[in-house]
Design a binder for these strands. Structure first.
Lengths: 149, 149
DNA sequence: TCTAATACCTGTAGTTACTACAGAATCAAG
DNA sequence: CTTGATTCTGTAGTAACTACAGGTATTAGA
């Protein structure tokens, strides 16, 4: 009675189940132009095929990585080499790479800080002498107002 | 002539300059109850002393580590002289660390993909060789240059 | 001391990326 | 054909700010 979930074309509910993305968000993406306008049944219900499914997965992955909606639009353009010449792709990709690398750098700093704090904190002291709290209270972090993000 | 920036009590503008946080955000934090209601001058301007300054810095640092507003509230409660245990702080931070690390892993994969894409593109191959992009290259681009809306 | 130029006040509205309804229409199983 | 689950559109709410608008305080200079 089920196991029809991955049969195309599928309804928005099945696409939702298959992708893990809510129907509301799928409709929202269509309205924002991230997803193409879906074809409808005579009654007006949206129908999706595999291409839309793959595109949705791509969008979700990019969003999970912290790319903004405009970023995702740019990424999708790169994936469409048919109407984009190589130079533009190259430029977009380079720009994107830079932003990815800067994201990685800042996350690594964060990771290091969190690791240190967790390590210090682990020697379970129990009271408000928690080293992590103290480090946020005192100012021994080299990130004053001058070193803005 | 200036250099009075770090003299307490200070105005919201000076606190803003000293902390790197905008006046709007400071007022917002007060409204949200993250910062205590500031004492006012007879004319109604907010005045801040060192304790509020330090608290603000604490909040900003916690936010930079990715803690949500409710998280920050919890952290502040723990920083209170009453009684706290380090384990809760530890758990919050560990959770944060995990999510940061998983983001880094994904971004590294994307970085590699983008680097390859750029290299290929340079050698004239084009974006079609990118595995991630190829997976969605089927035919979800039915709308031509006229992106009707 | 008076007066401009700032700085600050409150309150509302906009932002991003969704999420959660409400009320009506459609679809699929029996 | 009926009934209950889905889907439809459109509006409003969320987090965590940011950006005004229109009005009052404060302060530095003449």
């Amino acid at each position: 009675m089920h196991s029809q979930e991955t049969v195309f074309p599928m309804s928005i509910g099945n696409l939702s189940a298959a992708s893990g993305c809510s129907p509301e968000t799928i409709r929202y993406y269509e309205k924002q132009g991230l997803l193409p306008v879906a074809p409808r049944t005579p009654g007006g219900h949206r129908m999706y095929d595999e291409a839309q499914y793959k595109l949705l997965i791509f969008i979700l992955r990019a969003r999970q990585l912290g790319f903004s909606q405009p970023d995702v639009r740019r990424l999708m353009q790169m994936a469409n080499p048919v109407r984009t010449d190589c130079d533009v792709v190259h430029e977009l990709a380079s720009h994107q790479l830079e932003s990815v690398q800067s994201k990685i750098r800042s996350l690594r700093r964060l990771e290091k800080t969190l690791e240190e704090l967790i390590a210090d904190c682990k020697s379970g002291i129990g009271a408000r002498e928690c080293p992590m709290i103290e480090s946020m209270l005192d100012d021994f972090w080299p990130m004053g107002p001058s070193t803005g993000r």
